[in-house]
Design a protein around this nucleic acid. Structure first.
Lengths: 145, 145
DNA sequence: CTGTAAATAGGAATTGTTCCTATTTACGAA
DNA sequence: TTCGTAAATAGGAACAATTCCTATTTACAG
């Protein structure tokens, strides 16, 4: 069956060992939840979803673990104007549409953008690499289409 | 002297009237502070800076006013991973570099980007217009250059 | 000037996130 | 397998940013 997920989990464990991080059930479950998620859950949401399987899971653990994963480069924090952070496992580079009405976040790819070089003057200012485009607007659903 | 500022203030008052918003001293001062700011102050910072001239200014008023301005399209909320929001008056369209070390925000322009069309598939998803690029990295200063 | 709806001050409440610390656990070594 | 230890967790307290509540004040139309 889901050998893709299995591979992800194996890679995840390898990534942990490579950094001398213990492979705990909490970390496994949180990573799996993110790897399987279709949406961009918040820490709170992840906690909710997992609390059935891990009833004693604390919210602090979720936050701590997400930070750890982000430091490892395993996941991405999605930028938004709102205060809450959204998370996702980093797969192919992509950007985000945010509907200003329903706040839904939609991923999209934009190769032209990924390949684009920053302007000369900007490159002179430091080592800047991770380009992240956020586009705001209204999604079709909210437009009533 | 600063006729540029004067014009900005006049435009500001006009913008308020156009929306039936009262021109209060608080709104004037907050707008002026932003119009003159060289950096990207937080609400708190703005409150600090103004509390000399407006000793009774409440933090809530600053937050409320900033939200109002953002709705009016007069100012922009700068996106960051951190929770605090940064504000600036919207002048020429521009994007942001964020140094992951010192958290400094540097504006830059990128016309090619502003003019770039979103991919076809993306345009089909709704009405998305405001493109905002955030580039993360390390600034020269933090690189020790 | 006056009346009224809008805006403000100040403090309380909320929300997202992090800290504290006693307890538990993963896992390398014996 | 068992043990020791450093790392990780749970749970609640603390914190920081932001928003809410409401009595009071104010801009401005008439």
């Amino acid at each position: 069956m889901d050998s893709v997920l299995k591979k992800k989990m194996d890679d995840f464990q390898a990534a942990c060992r490579a950094r001398d991080l213990k492979v705990t059930p909490q970390r496994m479950e949180i990573f799996r939840e993110l790897a399987e998620a279709e949406d961009h859950p918040t820490a709170e949401k992840i906690h909710q979803r997992l609390s059935e399987r891990l009833p004693s899971l604390s919210l602090d653990t979720v936050y701590r673990t997400l930070r750890t994963f982000a430091e490892m480069g395993l996941i991405l924090r999605v930028e938004t104007t709102d205060s809450q952070a959204y998370f996702e496992v980093s797969h192919a580079p992509h950007h985000h549409l945010i509907c200003e009405k329903c706040k839904k976040i939609i991923d999209f790819q934009w190769q032209q953008m990924d390949e684009a070089q920053l302007p000369e003057e900007v490159r002179a200012l430091g080592r800047f690499e991770k380009k992240n485009v956020v586009v705001y607007g209204i999604c079709n659903r909210c437009l009533g289409k």
